[in-house]
């Protein structure tokens, strides 16, 4: 899947939640959830796998699948507390589609290919970078959080044990994580500026991803299908 053009990946990730909300519940939501969760199992779909250059495979896909499940589970819990059974199922399936689509997109879309694709289409580099930096922030923050947890563990603060212990550990993780991220933003801004990000010159695409005709047609078809479904639903 990661070989698809970045715009195709974005189109799929946007279309699935759109269909989940447009199509009648619970059938529509169930179908889109199954597709989205199925996508998370596709080879290469693993958080960080694209950036770390890991061998794609089903095992890494399972990590993405599990990540989507873990993120979606609390939504089901809160929906059940607030709504009756049918509404919980209808809303839960839609939210699960959204979560699974986003998790899959982050896992499968490499930020550098997105930037190259956007730049090749004439987008401003700063806008392209904003999209790509959002995607690349996930593995970076994850790695930093791991380092902070290890450092706190060295100082005797265990993230395991009672709820109070875990809350203390969470606070000790969150504060340095946020502060270091903010500090890094400052330095990264300077570094990117000096490397021409804000120059307003059109960037030369180094390796613009191949955009096949079939993919372009598929994207337009997805858009038309979404619009048709919306019109039929509103009619």
């Amino acid at each position: 899947m990661s070989a698809l053009h970045p715009f195709s990946l974005l189109a799929i990730a946007a279309a699935l939640p759109a269909f989940a909300w447009i199509l009648p519940a619970p059938g529509g939501g169930l179908a889109t959830t199954l597709i989205a969760m199925g996508l998370t199992l596709t080879p290469g779909a693993s958080p960080g796998s694209t950036s770390a250059g890991l061998t794609p495979g089903w095992r890494s896909g399972l990590v993405t699948f599990r990540t989507a499940l873990v993120i979606a589970a609390p939504f089901w819990l809160f929906l059940r507390l607030l709504h009756d059974g049918p509404t919980t199922v209808a809303m839960g399936l839609r939210i699960t589609t959204m979560v699974a689509s986003c998790v899959w997109l982050v896992a499968v879309l490499s930020p550098d290919r997105l930037v190259e694709a956007m730049v090749a289409r004439g987008w401003s580099l700063a806008v392209a970078y904003l999209f790509a930096a959002t995607l690349s922030a996930v593995p970076v923050l994850k790695a930093r959080a791991r380092r902070i947890v290890e450092a706190q563990r060295c100082r005797g603060l265990s993230p395991r044990g009672s709820v109070a212990n875990r809350l203390r550990a969470l606070r000790a993780l969150a504060l340095p994580l946020v502060l270091s991220a903010l500090h890094e933003v400052d330095e990264r801004t300077l570094a990117l500026e000096t490397r021409g990000l804000g120059m307003g010159v059109r960037r030369t695409p180094l390796a613009a991803p191949l955009d096949r005709t079939a993919e372009r047609v598929a994207r337009w078809t997805l858009l038309l299908l979404c619009l048709t479904a919306l019109i039929r639903r509103l009619a």
Binding site: T50, S51, G53, S110, P111, D112, V115, Y129, A132, A133, S136, V140, E184, E187, R188, A191, L192, R195, L206
Partner: peptide
């Protein structure tokens, strides 16, 4: 803090 975050090879 100076890596672009946009490149997966040193050359890029």
């Amino acid at each position: 803090t100076q890596v672009s975050g946009m490149a997966f090879t040193v050359w890029d």
